[in-house]
């Protein structure tokens, strides 16, 4: 049964890489079921993240957000700060797709704080880029300028010419 769980996870990832997102969801749902049977929180966390990703490419952004929220809860339970940051970043982007910019900003700020704690300058740069765009969408140009300047400063430091 444990091997079945791992195999469903691998199958889900293969379907995903092939662009077969419905099949990816089916496999990752099975993987999730087996992870729950075993109380395997790390595997459960991976399955929720993979499901969120597949729902993004199916255009089902609300479902993606629900799955990323479960990823975030489990990342916190598992005390994995890098995964927590990644989940916040995914949620920020998903709420941007849903045009809910206030929620997007909440999650991008959470991502920014963790990236700063972890001294992840690339993550911090991406958070600033995302925040600049979200504030622009809200018409808050002062905040947009603040984050655009921070993004520029970090991009120079990390040598990101694009």
């Amino acid at each position: 049964r444990a091997a079945q769980g791992r195999t469903y996870g691998n199958l889900g990832n293969t379907h995903y890489l092939l662009g077969q997102f419905r099949n990816a969801v089916k496999s990752h749902e099975q993987r999730l079921l087996i992870a729950k049977e075993f109380g395997d929180k790390a595997a459960e966390r991976r399955a929720y993240c993979n499901l969120g990703n597949a729902y993004i490419f199916l255009g089902e952004f609300s479902l993606a957000a629900e799955h990323y929220k479960r990823t975030l809860q489990l990342a916190r339970q598992l005390k994995d700060r890098a995964v927590e940051a990644q989940a916040c970043y995914s949620l920020g982007n998903t709420y941007t797709l849903l045009q809910d910019y206030e929620r997007a900003i909440d999650y991008h700020l959470k991502h920014l704080i963790i990236a700063q704690d972890l001294n992840d300058r690339i993550g911090e740069g991406r958070a600033c880029w995302s925040l600049g765009n979200a504030y622009t969408a809200l018409g808050n140009h002062d905040q947009a300028m603040h984050f655009a300047e921070k993004h520029l400063e970090i991009s120079k430091e990390t040598g990101d010419r694009s």
Binding site: R6, G9, N10, N13, Y16, L17, A43, R45, R46, A47, C49, N50, N53, I56, F57, G59, F61, Y89, S90, N93, T96, L97, Q99, R126, W129, S130, G132, N133, A137
Partner: peptide, 26 residues
């Protein structure tokens, strides 16, 4: 409409380009 919106926001577009080949491996 959602896809049109997506193209307008470059940071989201970049995230999705990365996400397309990102998987949580067993």
């Amino acid at each position: 409409t959602q896809r049109m919106h997506l193209i307008q926001i470059d940071s989201v577009q970049r995230w999705m380009e990365d996400l397309r080949y990102m998987t949580e491996v067993e």
